[in-house]
Design a protein around this nucleic acid. Sequence first.
DNA 1: CTTGACCCTCACGTTGCGTTATAGCCCATC
DNA 2: GATGGGCTATAACGCAACGTGAGGGTCAAG
Lengths: 267, 267
Amino acid sequence: MSAKDNTFSVSELSKASGVSVRTLHYYDEIGLLVPKRSKVNDYRIYTNHHGVLLQQIIVYRNMGMTLEKIKSMVLAKDFNLRQALADQHKLLVTKQAETAKSIQQIEVNMSVLDGEKNLNIIFDGLPKEKVEHLIDTMKQEEFSDEVFQVYGKISTEDMRQEKILLDKWTAEYMQHTNLPVADKRVQKLIKDAYIIMNRMFYRTVEEFSGLKYTSLIKIIEEGRVDKVTVEIYETYQKGLAKHYFDGLMHFAEHELLGNEASYVHLR
Amino acid sequence: MSAKDNTFSVSELSKASGVSVRTLHYYDEIGLLVPKRSKVNDYRIYTNHHGVLLQQIIVYRNMGMTLEKIKSMVLAKDFNLRQALADQHKLLVTKQAETAKSIQQIEVNMSVLDGEKNLNIIFDGLPKEKVEHLIDTMKQEEFSDEVFQVYGKISTEDMRQEKILLDKWTAEYMQHTNLPVADKRVQKLIKDAYIIMNRMFYRTVEEFSGLKYTSLIKIIEEGRVDKVTVEIYETYQKGLAKHYFDGLMHFAEHELLGNEASYVHLR
DNA sequence: CTTGACCCTCACGTTGCGTTATAGCCCATC
DNA sequence: GATGGGCTATAACGCAACGTGAGGGTCAAG
C-alpha cells in the first residue's frame, strides 16, 4: 500500500476523501465502488480511478441523489446525465418548497405562542379563570391565529410598558364615567387610548394590513363592541364598556378621518 | 364502537385523521399514542382526547420533528414548546440552506453540460478528435465552469443560427487574408464578427459581468490570442489567427471605446 | 513473541412506517 | 350451524445509508 504505486487501502482512501471506512465497505457491498482485492490477504485495493469515481459519487450524493441512482449514473455509459440532473433539480425544488411551508408554519405557531403570552400580560390583574376564558373565547374566533400572531409581534418588554400605561389609563377613565361622553376630559382620554393602541400595533399594521385587530379600530369599523372587550371592561366597572363605546364613536366622528384601510388616521 | 359514545376503533380514527392503521399501531407500540383496550377482545379504543393528541402529533410531524421529540412534547407537561419550535425552526432553516446550495450546484452543472453541447455546435465541422482536444483544453482552464455556463445560457436553436453565420463569415474572411488588416473590407468583416459575438452573448453579459468570456473581448483586453482560438483558426487556414488578431487590434483602436467593463462598446 | 495498527466479515441498530402472514372476533346470510 | 366478509390482533421482514461493535486474521516493529 505504498504511496508510490498509486493504490490505496480503505483507510487511506477514507482519509483522502473524507468518507468513512464503513461507507467504503458499503459501497463495495452494493456494487457502487468495487475495488480490486489483494491475493494474499484479501484487502481492498483502490486505485486513482476509484478515487475519481468516489469524488463523483460524493458530488451526486451531496445533491441528495439515492445511491441507487448514482449507481446507474456512474456505471451506465449511455446514461442521460442532463435528464438526471433536471429530475434531481425538480425533486429538490419540491422538497425545498415543502420545507419552506414547514418553516412558515412554525413561525406562525411561534407568533401565536408569543401572542398568547403578550395577551396574558395585557390581561394581568384580571382573575385567572377570567383570563383563561377570554383567551379561549379569542381562540374560538375566526382568524384567531392571525390575531394571536399580531399580538406576538410586539416584544414582551414593550408590552409590559404599554400595560402599565393602560392600567393607569383604565384607573383614570373609571373616574370619568359619570361625565357625558362628549365631555372634553373624556374625549382626551379616548384620544390617549387611541394613541397607545396605535403605537402598540403600528409596526404590525403594515405587515397585516387588511386585518381588523386592534379593538379600537374594530369597534369603530363594526360600530359595536366585541364580546371580549365588553367582558374586560365590565370586569373593571359595570357600564364601562358602553360608556367607552359611545365615547369612542363620538371621537371617531369628530377626530378621525374615514379611511379605507383597516386603521384610521387622526384628523 | 358506536359513534355515540365518542370512542373510535383503529380504522375509525385512521379514517378520521388520515393516518394509516399501521401508523396508529406503531404510535401505540412506541408509546406515543396509547389507547385503552377492550376487555372482551383486546381491540384498541381511542377517545376524543386521543383524537386531539393525534392532531397535534400530525402537526409536529409535518414540521419535520422526530417522533421521539414529539413524544417528549406531548407527554411532558413542563415541556418548553416555544423553545422546541425555535430549535426546529433553526434546524429547518439550516436544512433549507443546504438544499439551496445543492440546487445551485445542480444548476451550474446543467449549465456546464449545456455549454459543452453548444460548444460542440460551434466546433461542428472540425475533425472529431480536434473538438475533443479543444473541449478538454478549455476544461483545464481556470474558471472553466463559469465559461461553460456562459455558453450554456444561449439556446441550442439560437446557437445553430449563429453557427451558420459564423461559417459563412469564416469562409469569407479566408478570402481576405491576403489584404492588409487595415483594409476597409477586412475591417468590415471584423466588425461583423464583433456584432455576431456580441449578440450571441449579450444576454449573458449582464448576468456574468466581470467575466472574460467571448474570445474577441478576451483577445482585445489581453492583447493576445488564446490557445483555443488559435487552434481553431489555424485549422481553417494557416496564419489566419495572426491576421485576425492584428485586424482585431486595429479595429479595437479605431472603432471601440475603451471600457472598464468586460465588454467594449462601439464608438 | 507480543503489541498495536491495520484489515476482514458478519450482523444488529437506527427511523417511520408499508407490507404481508397468520389467526381471532363479529355479524349476517344461507 | 356453517360460511363468508370485514373487522381486529400480533409478529416479523423490508426500505436507505450507513454506525457500531463483535470476533478474528495480518503486518511491521520492538
